[in-house]
């Protein structure tokens, strides 16, 4: 991969961000760390969504479906069949990629608005099915709790979740800077023209989808072992989808960095609003913020910060 100067400069920023976040446990309490752990998982899901939907314009309303496959696979393997989590987690990731691809492959033939609806339908199917099919294994409506954890304590979990998120973020970010990233964006702008420049767009979309599924799989598998439980409600819910979507869009779709920002912003905002607004008012407020921001500034926080940075540079000159 050709790494130019600009990429190197950005990588410097990534490194600074990494170092800063690694020092954080020495400064803040475990309460804050636990909040940030959620932000890291949300960032995983939002980046996964962004790599598929932000790039190619194929809007997925079914990401909870992917996360759910991973979560249920590792939960069932480790909890019901005593498979060690060193095997169950990789198995879950593979299952997400394979299972997800098998289901979505036909859906990729469908254009635009319908794609979102089919993925939404997939999520609803899995929601219904986990409740009724083989409740002895899935735990039915109540799901499973008391899942094994990978590491214990807030600090360890913080480092684990940050590590996964950071590595995934850097890899995805490098990927979108290649010609692959450009080709995927071109699909969003005009798929027919991409085909007529000699590209097999199905292959490109399938690749984007598989990467997205892998990231969702990693995030989902680690997530259920962190929270220690899984249930259809909460997993296959529109509210969960909504949080992922809003994190990606609020931060700035198509940028990978944006969804990470969005995830931190959203999690921290929700947490600090908790004492003031204990109930659904929080969702009301942040949903309203997201809606206004989306209509007024669809490019999200990332573009606001990038613009500000540019202005500062001009001003210094």
């Amino acid at each position: 991969m050709a790494i130019d100067r600009e990429t190197l400069r950005y990588l410097g920023w990534w490194l600074a961000f990494g170092v800063l976040m690694c020092l954080l446990p020495f400064v803040v309490g475990t309460g804050t760390l636990r909040i940030l752990i959620f932000a890291h998982f949300l960032a995983m899901f939002a980046m996964s969504w962004d790599f598929l939907s932000g790039r190619t314009g194929y809007i997925s309303f079914g990401h909870p479906f992917l996360i759910g496959i991973a979560g249920y696979t590792t939960a069932i393997l480790s909890f019901r069949f005593d498979v060690p989590i060193y095997y169950s987690i990789p198995a879950a990731i593979v299952a997400t990629m394979v299972g997800g691809t098998l289901f979505f492959l036909p859906a990729l033939r469908i254009r635009g608005t319908y794609f979102a609806l089919v993925t939404l339908a997939f999520m609803e199917i899995l929601y219904q099915l986990t409740k009724v099919v083989a409740p002895k294994i899935t735990g039915g409506t109540r799901g499973m709790s008391g899942l094994e954890s990978i590491v214990t304590g807030a600090v360890n979990n913080y480092y684990l979740s940050f590590g996964i998120m950071f590595v995934t973020g850097v890899v995805l970010w490098l990927l979108i800077r290649t010609r692959l990233g450009i080709a995927l964006s071109a699909i969003r702008m005009n798929e027919e023209a991409v085909r007529s420049t000699g590209h097999n767009t199905t292959k490109l979309k399938l690749f984007a989808f598989t990467v997205s599924a892998a990231v969702s799989g990693i995030g989902g598998a680690f997530y259920v072992h962190y929270i220690g439980s899984i249930a259809p409600r909460g997993m296959f819910e529109i509210n969960f989808l909504f949080t992922i979507l809003v994190a990606a869009l609020l931060g700035g779709a198509e940028t990978i960095i944006g969804p990470i920002m969005g995830a931190y912003f959203l999690t921290v905002l929700l947490e600090y609003l908790r004492p003031v607004m204990p109930g659904m008012e929080r969702y009301l407020l942040y949903g309203a913020i997201a809606l206004v921001l989306y209509v007024v500034r669809p490019e999200g926080i990332y573009s606001i910060i990038a613009d500000a940075g540019r202005k500062v540079q001009e001003w210094r000159r």
């Binding site: 608005t113 529109i238 659904m280 309203a288 209509v295």
Partner: peptide, 18 residues
């Protein structure tokens, strides 16, 4: 149409909270 789809979904969740 995609922006309409996304924004009306957000609106629906906001109304649910309301």
């Amino acid at each position: 149409p995609i922006a309409v789809e996304i924004s009306t979904l957000i609106l629906a969740v906001v109304m649910q909270a309301l």
